[in-house]
Computed example of a mutant assay.
Amino acid sequence: MKSGVYFIGAGPGDPDLLTVKAYKILQQADVILYADSLVPKQIFKDVKPTAELIPTGNKTLEIIVPLMIEKVKQNLTVVRLQSGDLCLYSAIYEQMIQLAEADIPFELIPGISAYQAAAAKISAELTIPELVQTIILTRVSGSASPMPEKEELKGLASHQASLCLYLAARHVHKAQKDLLEYYSADTPVAVCYRVGWEDEKILIVPLTQMAKATEENNLIRTTMYIISPALKKLSDYEFRSKLYHPSHQHLFRPK
Rank of each mutant, 00 (worst) to 15 (best):
G84P: 08
T127K: 05
G142W: 04
Y115L: 15
A118G: 05
L86C: 08
Q95Y: 12
K121G: 01
L76V: 06
T134R: 08
Q116T: 10
I104S: 03
L137A: 14
E94S: 15
I135E: 06
L88S: 13
Y89M: 08
V132D: 09
L131R: 01
S143P: 01
E94Q: 08
K121V: 02
L81N: 08
S143L: 11
A91L: 07
Q82E: 13
S90K: 08
P129L: 14
G84Y: 06
S143N: 13
L137C: 11
E125T: 11
A119T: 09
V132R: 01
A114D: 10
A117L: 07
I109T: 07
A119F: 13
V79C: 03
Y93A: 14
S123K: 12
K121D: 12
E125N: 15
M96A: 05
S83G: 11
E130Q: 13
I136H: 12
L126N: 03
R80V: 00
S113F: 05
L108Q: 10
I109Y: 02
D103T: 13
E107W: 00
V132A: 06
I112S: 02
I122G: 05
A124C: 02
L108D: 03
Q95P: 11
Q95K: 14
I112P: 00
L99P: 01
L137K: 09
P110R: 04
Q133D: 14
D103M: 06
R139D: 13
E125H: 12
